[in-house]
Amino acid sequence: MNTNYLKNILSLIFLISLFACQTQVNSTEQYICPMKCEDHKTYDHPGTCPVCKMDLVKVSSLEAPILDEDGISEESIFNLQSEWKTQDNESIHLTDLKGKVLVVVMIYTSCEAACPRLVADMRNIYSKVDDPNVDYVLVSIDPEKDTPEKLKTYAQEEHLEGDQWILLQGKLDDVREFSNVLSMKYKKISPIDFSHTNIISVFDKQGVLQHQQEGLGVSNDKLVQKVKALSEE
């Protein structure tokens, strides 16, 4: 028993020194040649394929979509950890929106030029799609001014009413991160105004980006079609 115990301790120290700051030791992962040179032969350790010399990859990484332990695809916006406030002052994470098709736009409520048109387009899409399994999400790029109360008022003014309309306020940093996921650009150009790109994005029920409509006054037919198809999946 003693020797075993000692062995364990020694190997633990050895492991620690090997992996230094590593916080995760995953021994169950199998590795395989990405070209499948040896068919389905797998290895316990990373290395190179003896046939084509390519780096072995994890077996799991070859299957698409790649899901982590929570069943979230690695392309999903549900990977974002950020916390948001809704117009009803509820705290939510993006994963809370899982299971519904999402139509997303980034706006700010004091915007007078492009945003009213974007919001009108959102309403138009909403009535064309006419499906309770789709949520409509408006994320403010001006979280300093767009408080939950402000968003609530805005939703009323713009007739964005019902459970399917979700208006979000986030932290400055998280809003910037979210815009990067959408490849959306914006810049504060004066104390009240922003310049920004006009993009309406569609995410499937797993939070993976499936379609983007860019520009103002563009036909939303394609987008509507896509939303309907995704909702039926």
Binding site: P34, V57, S61, I66, E74, E75, S183, I199, L209, Q210, H211, Q212, Q213, E214, G215, V218
Partner: peptide, 18 residues
């Protein structure tokens, strides 16, 4: 991680506008 995973929807759209 490997391969192209970001669909260039936006690009296609740009092209169609174009």
């Amino acid at each position: 991680m490997y391969g192209l995973k970001y669909p260039s929807i936006k690009l296609l759209l740009l092209c169609s506008i174009f």
